[in-house]
Design a protein around this nucleic acid. Structure first.
Length: 263
DNA sequence: GCGACAG
DNA sequence: ATCTTGTCGC
């Protein structure tokens, strides 16, 4: 049974201190371990559905683009949501809401949360897993955008960031082999005991031979997913590109929907 | 005071 | 995030 927490929804009108206090509440409500019904094994192999527990889970990717004003100012955020199941796109929806506050590292969900929740409301299918472009537990107060949205909806979620917000890799993350991961642990900048496992640097793609390297993704639990599983899921969903497919598709769709409103 | 800082 | 074609390398 789900227990959504609309009371913890992002409010761009809060003061910075209030936002940070809300994030601590969110981190308290968040579950950073596996707590979902679907079988992760059905993610990578669409043909394994017959042998496993029914249909593959509905995995939803979320990403944003921004719309500009007549004066050239970014005044609206567009959130694109792409629902997939067994590798197939089953639904795409998007929503546009006014942009209330500027980008502040650590407070991303208060800037982009409204359009995301609005877009998720448009979805007719029930998501089993949400994938976000940004951090989950790898966050100053362990409440990145993936955690915030996951807790508000009480849907399992994972944060997929292209750069590291905070925390420290336990080993060098340069030139990792494809399919490998390096733990990211908390440091003094994180509101958690030093050494806490926050997530993983995950190398979904890598060049074979030359002197060229691809940066890893920084994957962390949003809600109801453990760090190990979060990394497993991202690796399973990143087939031919660096980003897991649902997020890559949402990325594309965010630009496509933007063009349709701009051109 | 200085540095760090998802999208 | 966003402004943006070609281009270097496998």
């Amino acid at each position: 049974m789900r227990h959504p927490r609309p009371d913890l929804a992002p409010d761009a009108g809060l003061s910075r201190a209030e936002m940070e206090a809300l994030q601590r509440e969110i981190a308290d409500a968040a579950v950073f371990e596996d707590d979902f019904a679907f079988d992760p094994a059905t993610l990578s192999n669409p043909l394994a559905t017959t042998a496993s527990a029914g249909d593959p889970p509905v995995v939803v990717g979320v990403d944003q683009s921004f719309l500009t004003n007549e004066d050239g100012d970014q005044d609206r955020a567009l959130s694109a949501v792409v629902a997939t199941r067994g590798g197939e796109v089953i639904e795409r929806v998007h929503a546009v809401t006014p942009l209330e506050i500027p980008y502040v590292p650590g407070l991303l969900s208060f800037r982009e949360g409204a359009p995301i929740l609005a877009a998720l409301d448009e979805l007719s299918v029930e998501p089993d897993l949400l994938l976000f472009d940004g951090s989950g537990r790898i966050h100053f107060r362990q409440a990145g955008i993936a955690t915030h949205m996951g807790v508000v909806r009480d849907v399992p979620s994972i944060g997929v960031a292209k750069s590291l917000l905070c925390g420290t890799p336990r080993e060098d993350t340069d030139d990792l082999l494809e399919g490998t991961r390096v733990a990211i642990e908390s440091n003094s900048r994180v509101d958690a005991p030093d050494g806490t496992l926050l997530g993983y640097a995950v190398q979904t793609r890598q060049y074979d031979s030359p002197n060229r390297y691809i940066n890893p993704l920084y994957v962390s639990p949003g809600h109801r997913v453990g760090p190990e599983t979060a990394a497993d899921v991202v690796l399973a969903l990143a087939s031919s590109y660096k980003l897991p497919e649902p997020v890559r598709l949402a990325d594309q769709y965010a630009d496509e929907a933007k063009r349709n409103l701009t051109e």
